[in-house]
Amino acid sequence: MAEENHQTTPPEEAQPTQPLPRPYGVPSLNNNTEKLEWPELVGLTAEEAESKIKQETTGVRVHVVPPNSFVTMELRQDRVRLYVDADGKVARAPKIG
């Protein structure tokens, strides 16, 4: 009789679980209780908004962006952009990035 060549597959071993990659553009929270966005600052002056952001969040740099200005698209966890209108008031909700 011909020998049958049976290959047995070993039982699947438990693979160590790796964290899933974080999608691009999504800040990681890492149990951080600091804010990531400030919608309540819309309508305030840039100086007032910058002061409130720096009171609530540590280690961020605030950049004021005048109307019709170009900005780069990279994501930075240490930056908050303040988009202001012609009157110098915050035009949209500032956020980390």
Rank of each mutant, 00 (worst) to 15 (best):
M1E: 12
A2M: 07
E3M: 12
E4N: 10
N5V: 15
H6F: 14
Q7M: 11
Q7K: 08
T8S: 14
T8A: 13
T9F: 14
T9L: 11
P10M: 14
P10K: 15
P10Y: 13
P10W: 15
P11Y: 02
P11F: 09
E12S: 10
E13H: 13
E13K: 10
E13P: 01
A14T: 15
Q15N: 14
P16F: 06
P16E: 10
T17A: 15
T17G: 15
P19I: 04
L20C: 08
P21F: 13
P21D: 12
P21L: 11
R22T: 14
R22I: 11
P23Q: 12
P23E: 14
P23V: 08
Y24L: 05
Y24S: 03
G25P: 04
G25Q: 00
G25E: 01
G25S: 02
V26S: 03
P27N: 13
P27R: 06
S28E: 11
N30R: 10
N30D: 07
N31A: 08
N31T: 05
N31R: 11
N32E: 09
T33Y: 05
T33W: 06
E34W: 09
L36R: 07
L36C: 12
L36D: 07
E37L: 11
E37K: 06
W38E: 03
E40G: 02
E40L: 01
L41G: 01
G43V: 02
G43D: 06
G43W: 10
T45P: 00
A46K: 04
E47N: 05
E48F: 07
A49V: 02
A49H: 04
S51L: 08
S51I: 01
S51W: 07
K52W: 13
K52R: 14
K52T: 12
K52M: 06
I53W: 02
I53Q: 04
I53D: 00
I53S: 04
K54D: 00
Q55V: 04
E56D: 10
E56P: 02
E56W: 03
T57M: 04
T57G: 03
G59T: 04
V60A: 03
R61G: 09
R61V: 15
V62A: 02
H63P: 08
H63D: 14
H63K: 09
V64S: 03
V64R: 02
V64I: 14
V65H: 06
V65G: 11
V65M: 11
P66M: 05
P67A: 05
P67T: 04
S69A: 11
S69K: 12
S69H: 13
F70I: 00
F70N: 07
V71N: 06
T72I: 12
M73L: 06
M73R: 10
E74N: 11
E74Y: 12
L75Q: 09
R76F: 12
Q77V: 08
R79F: 09
L82H: 01
Y83K: 09
Y83D: 08
Y83M: 10
V84R: 00
D85V: 03
A86L: 13
D87H: 05
D87R: 10
D87M: 08
V90P: 01
V90I: 04
V90N: 03
A91E: 08
A93L: 07
A93M: 12
P94I: 00
K95Q: 06
K95T: 00
K95W: 05
G97I: 12
G97M: 04
G97P: 01
G97D: 02
